[in-house]
């Protein structure tokens, strides 16, 4: 007997319209922002219009401190390295913790303790130790974002259904096989949501480093522009930060789709 089933086909049209909706919402936000500043005639020293912020980004600036290409690439570099470092390191620590209850009990309180200290407060000490620059910013990014990565990974590994483990156990499978074939794949959704949280936290970490002490980067632009009450570059910098976080979020989402094609299939009703 062959069972006939119909898989509900609800794919392309809805996705396209959803995408248009998202783009439309962002566009609308900028439009309202621009309109409010212009209509209320707000002094640009308080709020820049998005158009002058974007213009600031697009046109070459005479002031060397506003060298956008350099500042963006410095922050991008720190951010990407910091994020990758956290993604790999946090996942590995999460696996270690998920693997052994003893390790979990030993290090969890420490992690919670560290995570409770605001990053802004640790950064100055790190700067004394390491001076400012790439290493410090990456370390700050890591400290700011490793916790959700660790928690999500270990929670994902623990989330596996006990019955699924029986499946391997009755065949005399090893702990290693259980890990590779059952635990890790079932933790993937958790790991990816950890990564998504990480993207924004890593941006924050890198920027905190740059705000406190640096000679370049988007955070540096903000500090520098603040002294001169020059708001367009400040807002330009904010827009770039959000683009960085958003871009990485998008990349993580794409990798997620590639890594877990099963999760994006339509379930039958």
């Amino acid at each position: 007997m062959k069972a006939a089933i119909t898989v509900k086909n609800k794919k392309k049209p809805r996705r396209l319209s959803q995408r248009l909706q998202s783009i439309g919402a962002v566009f609308l936000f900028f439009l309202v922002w621009e309109a409010v500043v212009r209509i209320a005639n707000i002094n640009e020293a308080f709020i820049s219009t998005p158009s002058s912020a974007i213009a600031h980004l697009l046109f070459a600036q005479p002031d060397a401190n506003y060298h956008w290409q350099k500042n963006i690439s410095v922050t991008l570099y720190d951010f990407v390295l910091g994020f990758l470092f956290t993604a790999v390191g946090g996942t590995l620590i999460g696996i270690l913790i998920g693997w052994s209850k003893t390790i979990q009990k030993a290090v969890m309180p420490l992690f919670v303790m560290f995570n409770s200290i605001p990053m802004v407060a640790i950064a100055p000490i790190l700067l004394i130790w390491m001076g400012y620059g790439l290493k410090t910013n990456i370390l700050i990014a890591f400290l700011a974002s490793f916790f959700p990565m660790v928690i999500n990974t270990s929670a994902g590994l623990a989330s596996v259904e006990d019955d699924l483990l029986d499946l391997v156990r009755y065949l005399n499978g090893s702990k290693w096989q259980t890990f590779w074939k059952i635990r890790l794949p079932s933790a993937l959704p958790y790991i990816f949501s950890g990564l998504k949280i990480c993207t924004t936290l890593s941006v924050m970490g890198v920027i905190v480093g740059e705000l406190i002490a640096s000679d370049s980067g988007l955070g540096y632009v903000i500090v520098n522009a603040q002294l001169m009450m020059d708001t367009p570059p400040m807002f330009a910098s904010l827009i770039m930060m959000s683009l960085l976080g958003w871009g990485m979020f998008l990349i993580v989402s794409i990798v997620e789709r590639l890594a877990m094609p099963w999760a994006f299939k339509d379930e039958i009703q």
């Binding site: 005399n172 499978g173 074939k181 999760a263």
Partner: peptide, 25 residues
Amino acid sequence: FVFQKPLLLHWRKVLDNVLLPIEIL
């Protein structure tokens, strides 16, 4: 062993689910 629940690994295609015991063994 056939369990109460199907207990399929939802990240594996049907064929790969059937082959799981072969990999474990």
